[in-house]
Design a protein around this nucleic acid. Sequence first.
DNA 1: GTGAAAGCGCTAACAG
DNA 2: CTGTTAGCGCTTTCAC
Lengths: 344, 344
Amino acid sequence: MSRPPTPDPRRPLTLRDVSEASGVSEMTVSRVLRNRGDVSPATRDRVIEAAKRLGYVPNKIAGALASQRVNLVAVIIPSLGNMVFPEVLAGISDALDDTGLQPVVGVTNYSAEREEAVLYEMLSWRPTGVILAGLEHSDASRAMLENAGIPIVEIMDVDGPAIDSNVGISHHRAGRQMAEAIIAAGYRRIGFLGTMMPDDHRARKRLAGFREALGEAGLSLVDTEFYSGGSALLKGREMTEAMLTRNPDLDFLYYSNDMIGAGGLLYCLDKGIDVPGRLGLAGFNGVELLDGLPRRLATMDACRREIGEIAAQIIAGKRQSDLIGGERVELTPKLQKGDTIRAV
Amino acid sequence: MSRPPTPDPRRPLTLRDVSEASGVSEMTVSRVLRNRGDVSPATRDRVIEAAKRLGYVPNKIAGALASQRVNLVAVIIPSLGNMVFPEVLAGISDALDDTGLQPVVGVTNYSAEREEAVLYEMLSWRPTGVILAGLEHSDASRAMLENAGIPIVEIMDVDGPAIDSNVGISHHRAGRQMAEAIIAAGYRRIGFLGTMMPDDHRARKRLAGFREALGEAGLSLVDTEFYSGGSALLKGREMTEAMLTRNPDLDFLYYSNDMIGAGGLLYCLDKGIDVPGRLGLAGFNGVELLDGLPRRLATMDACRREIGEIAAQIIAGKRQSDLIGGERVELTPKLQKGDTIRAV
DNA sequence: GTGAAAGCGCTAACAG
DNA sequence: CTGTTAGCGCTTTCAC
């Protein structure tokens, strides 16, 4: 009943274990495993064989501490629940694919307080860079970002000053543009339906731009309705019904996102309302999801995937401009009239 | 022109900086910042003041290496693109909230190879535990998981042997149950429409169970149709049209997920097909999204949120059973007939 | 209640 | 091409 020579099978293997098993120094083992520096094919093979046989998984914690390098990119977004941020993520993920960098995602639920906590947690892992949604942050968050000493990319929104780099669209202008298209199509009695999220700054800016353009045309919103929580499709349906009951003479409904817009569209089709003749509809985002609806909802592409790609390229240093301070990239969303705004 | 005393403003602050700024030893600073051990209120205040003033963010890499503890839980899922995994994540996130543990998400795109790479990467950060979707893994992945020496929870699926703990539903049984309900409702000429993902093992198991139950009733699938990529809603529409054109006499369509089912439903309503009288429809997942459709699609709740919660509790050690080996939890999905299966 | 010393597992920098 | 030495920034352990 002698104790076996292996000390503790639960203990994770170290470089030393591989070194002993292969008869090669730790340093050379390390070189092989990282593909750094020249190692003779013979030694290399012995090391790889031993590492594979033992099932060695390197300890990045130790590696990162020693090398002062972490291959992580912090990505901080408000939500995973609505298809728009996953698409941004897909863009980031794609662009990072051949860089050795890895995204790590944190979710804030549109709360500045949560953002601060998530950011603190992520910065404590000393990532290579930070990508985060929006330009509005708490003072503490802003201070952390400014002092982090790593590239910061604020995405989605360009309406305001950025800490470092910035990639996105102008939501204010997007709201204006939609209003102008609606007015040009001859609609006059317009209602707005949106989310009641005080911290959804982009939705707020779209609405502000929308109102501004209406005002310049001598118009104003006839009615507004806000919601929070629940199935967006269902909410869109309910809110549309409520609003049309209050104001049967509305001739256009502008929704803050495509999902509630889709709910509204389905409601109108149910009720046999003539869309876009008697009533026009528009949403925002250009979510692919909607392609299967009976009519294509008018919307505006928010360039989500492209935003993610560019942000990731900035972090990866693939867009080195010699700018002092960060890079600014403003994309221009495309208006898609679909089938729910009548031709002029 | 003397050099300022601060060495380099870009260098991240260390415990030593806080120690010097507060005149308290590094060790005591560390204790204050971690709320560990007794420290006099006076010292504590000085330390906290200094840390805040400097904007110190602890280095978790060094902390983790020294303490051999990492507050990260690796979560590995196939996709973020379809609402089902975000809901699992929400459950995990909730359950982890007051434990000091943090989920880190990796995405495999339903590829075993990607899973292996993601797993390797995550294990190299020495997480507290691993939660991953499914029971099917490459040999190498399995070996890594078995040797990791940390709790592993395989989720979503219980149809097969698990490495350690296991939380999910039986997709085979879910398929059977749906078939039985359809047959009981009197449908006989049944088609199946699904994703063509060889690595979506859960969809495959549902189909197998479905076929098995049909077989026992002396029936078999009249037609099948598979797709990959694109807008699920649109695909559902197109596939439904294709299948009904080929086989106009089908009386039921079983979809492998709710989104394509919804597309099919919209198509049928468009065409004025009598649902559920002449044609019945059913999907899978119970996605809240669908609540806004004109009819409620028959579906089966996959208990996504609950699965996430339980898995996280297991990792957090909140469900200590004295089992040797892992814990097994099988949840039972509820069949929701909605408006698209006729009453018996 | 506080501090000093000794590593955690790895890699940078240098020698040979 | 390979090995040795000295840390990375923190926490453990043990003194005081």
